[in-house]
Simulated scan of single mutants.
Amino acid sequence: MAVLVTGGVGYIGSHTCVELLNSGYEIIVVDSLTNSKPEVLNRIRELAGKDFPFHHLDLLDRAAMEKVFSNNSIEAVIHLAGLKAVEESVELPLRYYYTNIAGTLILCETMQKYGVKKLVFSSSATVYGISESVPISEHFPLAATNPYGQTKLMIERILQDLYISDNSWSISLLRYFNPIGAHASGRIGEDPNGIPNNLMPHISQVAVGKLKELIIFGSDYPTTDGTGVRDYIHVVDLAIGHLKALERVAVSSGIEAFNLGTGKGYSVLEMVRAFERAFGGKIPYRLAERRSGDVAMCYADPAKAEALLGWAAVRGIEEMCEDSWRWQVNNPNGYDD
Rank of each mutant, 00 (worst) to 15 (best):
1 M>V: 11
2 A>T: 13
4 L>P: 00
5 V>Y: 05
6 T>F: 07
9 V>K: 08
16 T>K: 04
18 V>W: 12
23 S>P: 04
25 Y>T: 03
27 I>D: 05
29 V>M: 00
30 V>W: 00
31 D>Q: 13
31 D>Y: 01
38 P>Y: 07
47 L>M: 03
53 P>H: 06
56 H>Y: 07
69 F>D: 07
70 S>W: 15
73 S>L: 00
78 I>V: 07
82 G>M: 03
87 E>D: 15
90 V>S: 13
90 V>I: 13
102 A>C: 05
105 L>Y: 01
112 Q>E: 14
115 G>Q: 10
116 V>Y: 06
119 L>N: 04
129 G>P: 09
133 S>K: 15
134 V>R: 04
135 P>S: 02
135 P>W: 06
138 E>V: 05
141 P>K: 09
142 L>H: 14
156 E>R: 10
158 I>Y: 14
162 L>W: 08
164 I>P: 07
170 S>C: 04
171 I>C: 10
185 S>I: 03
186 G>W: 10
192 P>R: 06
203 I>G: 03
203 I>Y: 02
208 V>S: 02
210 K>C: 01
212 K>C: 02
214 L>F: 03
225 D>W: 05
226 G>S: 08
226 G>V: 13
227 T>S: 12
228 G>A: 13
231 D>I: 08
233 I>D: 09
242 H>Y: 01
248 R>D: 04
250 A>R: 12
253 S>H: 15
258 F>L: 06
259 N>L: 08
260 L>P: 10
263 G>C: 00
281 G>P: 04
283 I>E: 09
301 D>Y: 02
302 P>A: 06
303 A>Y: 01
311 W>G: 03
324 S>Q: 01
327 W>D: 03
330 N>L: 07
